[in-house]
Design a binder for these strands. Structure first.
Lengths: 206, 206
DNA sequence: AAACGGTTTAACCATATGGTAAAATTTTAA
DNA sequence: TTAAAATTTTACCATATGGTTAAACCGTTT
């Protein structure tokens, strides 16, 4: 029973995750979630009182999973270059497995910006900044990285890793014309992005 | 009459554009489009037989507008660095005015990848490659840009310019914690991205 | 002015959707 | 074993939605 309960709740959650990621909040249908979970609609509402609640549960978990990917960047004992590679590697691996996930998150966050604040609530920014500056103070100085350029660099790194998956259908369609293969492109992406990013940063040294 | 017709059709089109961009295909309601256009639902179906048809009309126009932004990169008589700056400038200006547009396109294309092929149908890729290689053959050689690295570079440039707007709510929420202002960040984005990109490319020179 | 063609409206319709009530079934505790 | 508690199902409801029909309106032509 507790076992079965977990099975049922788990099944519902997995089905809901799939459907929400695939169709978004608006496009998802409670009936479809129920069907995929192998139960009926009323049971869905028994476990999660409303579509909104179910969505919130799914979204929160997924967003946190995604956020976790960024954590090692702060506590690993690596050089800046190694850290950049590590981030690209982690992020790319993750998105190869769940390619629709980033667009889903961007989309739902954009439709309800409040959501992101809930997920970030427990993020300690003062601590993160301190860690980064302690670990890489010398490199920051050498490459003139400060509180103005750091956001530019970090969003650029995020962009370079996430965007290809978000724009996959467009990129694939263009590549098709030019005879390029998307999977090969992705395979080389980590190496390219690491070199590209680190070279760009290094060249800030006067 | 023909005048009024155009006015009405125009009003419908503008209202539909706003609603679709704001809510997406699934979230948009025909009633809301009618309300915003100041007409009723039946008139909507008189001009555009179905929601699908209306959406297609809106999407096609918008996607083509977006695509046009890329054109000057190929026929302007500029150096590679100038071209990069020019692209970032154009794209950023455009998205400052229509910040929801890129996410809308990415989203709908992802839900129906066929759409992108329709828009790209008349794109002459052989010609584009030729132009680029003629105009920048020397720079391509110097910086070791070939048919394998060119896609990496171009998607990186697109990513760096588009991603900040697509992820705006997330970036804003994080910036808020760190005391950074999104608009100031965007103001500096063109300069930063141009330097970042061109430095990364230049450093490919051995 | 009457007929005509395009335009607009009000009133509908069928269906899909999120959600609920209450009965039936199963599980747990006594 | 039996009563209670939890779980699952059947049958429903109210509302929203995309779409249609038929009549009214209005400017143009004859």
């Amino acid at each position: 029973m507790t076992e079965l309960e977990k099975q049922t709740e788990e099944k519902i959650f997995e089905a809901a995750t799939d459907v929400f990621i695939e169709k978004g909040m608006d496009g998802a249908r409670m009936q479809e979630i129920a069907d995929r979970a192998g139960i009926n609609k009323a049971l869905l509402h028994y476990y999660y009182r409303s579509k909104e609640k179910l969505f919130d549960a799914v979204f929160t978990i997924i967003a946190k999973q995604m956020l976790k990917r960024f954590a090692p960047v702060f506590d690993e004992n690596l050089t800046l270059e190694e850290k950049i590679r590590f981030y690209y590697q982690q992020q790319t691996d993750f998105m190869k497995r769940s390619p629709r996930l980033p667009l889903f998150i961007l989309n739902e966050v954009s439709r309800n910006p409040q959501r992101v604040k809930n997920v970030l609530k427990h993020l300690d920014h003062t601590n993160l900044l301190k860690i980064l500056e302690e670990q890489h103070g010398d490199e920051f100085a050498r490459y003139k990285i400060n509180r103005e350029t750091l956001p530019q660099i970090m969003t650029s790194i995020a962009a370079m890793s996430i965007f290809p998956f978000v724009a996959k259908p467009i990129i694939e369609a263009i590549f098709e014309k030019f005879g390029t293969n998307f999977n090969e492109y992705i395979e080389r992406r980590v190496d390219f992005a690491t070199a590209f990013t680190y070279n760009a940063i290094k060249s800030r040294e006067k």
